[in-house]
Design a protein around this nucleic acid. Structure first.
Ligand code: MN
Ligand code: MN
Ligand code: MN
Ligand code: MN
Lengths: 153, 153
DNA sequence: TCTAAAGTGTAGCCTGTGCTACAAATCCAT
DNA sequence: ATGGATTTGTAGCACAGGCTACACTTTAGA
């Protein structure tokens, strides 16, 4: 049998990942983290609009617990990335891409919380931890969570 | 009955968290993220030492998939935070605090992976997502995970 | 209406985390 | 033992994401 080269999920006999595999995993985790803030903003903006009809920088800042200057700077990044539109003193709106991201995150957030509750995590810890965990849940994992929740209702 | 002030886990009737509650959750998620890199370094350094007797900046960098300059800069931060010691050209060592963090993260990593596998997440997705999720799992959540794994073997 | 409060935007600072380029030290093989 | 390869360290850059301070706009109440 021809020797094969190391592949995606390779872990050696001891269960340790091979070096390139581990490097790739860390890299993906970094990428996920880089998107986390935008995801939270999109989800929050959609919520503010759904609830109150508009998303103002000050409201966004207050909900996130950051200064309004910080919020405004991140909103500028959302615009650069094509996720939001905003004109001075007129509130923030989501583009189609931003709206899609918001809905994806909303579903993800809910499923992560539900999964945590289902395995016995206390409610407040579930809500707290989900806020970070949601950004690291891949589609495959999300699907598994949903299946697990559906299977044992 | 005297009116009570809003408290830690308060969510209103619609299931939405109150504003200060949500701000606190986001803040804690940010804090967790700020510690994530140090946690990964500590875990990795402990692993390199356990496996090969020493942790060299170049090896650390290669395993993480970053440049050696980046690794060295973060090692400097580990030293500042009292988690590691290192002298020029002599490799990196963990302080007692660093070693404790490393062991905590090692256990956390394993439990998160096991939990994900238990609820049906494919192996590679579990390994990948755990690398990010582990940094957002509180003690309460970790305990719940462990209990869930122990209960249904 | 018009003034004060609230909201918004900008400037400038800091830190963390990445990079490349280059310099210095160490290690190894001849 | 020494010179080339490797490792380590440093310098300097970029950008994200925090902050405060200050200026400008809008909104709302007297
Ligand atoms: Mn979040
Ligand atoms: Mn969320
Ligand atoms: Mn990790
Ligand atoms: Mn880990």
């Amino acid at each position: 049998m021809a020797p094969r080269t190391a592949q995606a999920g390779d872990d050696d006999a001891s269960g340790m990942p091979t070096e390139p595999t581990q490097a790739r995993r860390f890299g993906k985790a970094r990428t996920a983290q880089a998107h986390a803030l935008l995801e939270d903003y999109a989800e929050l903006i959609a919520d503010l609009i759904a609830t109150g009809g508009e998303a103002r920088p000050t409201d966004i800042a207050r909900r996130l617990g950051v200064s309004h200057a910080t919020a405004i700077k991140t909103i500028a990044r959302l615009k650069r990335e094509g996720l939001a539109t905003a004109r001075p003193y007129r509130g923030v709106f989501l583009t189609e891409a931003g709206e899609a991201l918001a809905q994806r995150m909303k579903a993800r957030h809910r499923i992560v919380v539900d999964l945590l509750l289902r395995v016995g995590v206390p409610a407040e810890a579930a809500e707290q931890d989900a806020e970070g965990i949601e950004h690291h849940v891949s589609d495959a994992t999300l699907a598994a969570f949903a299946a697990f929740l559906a299977a044992k209702p």
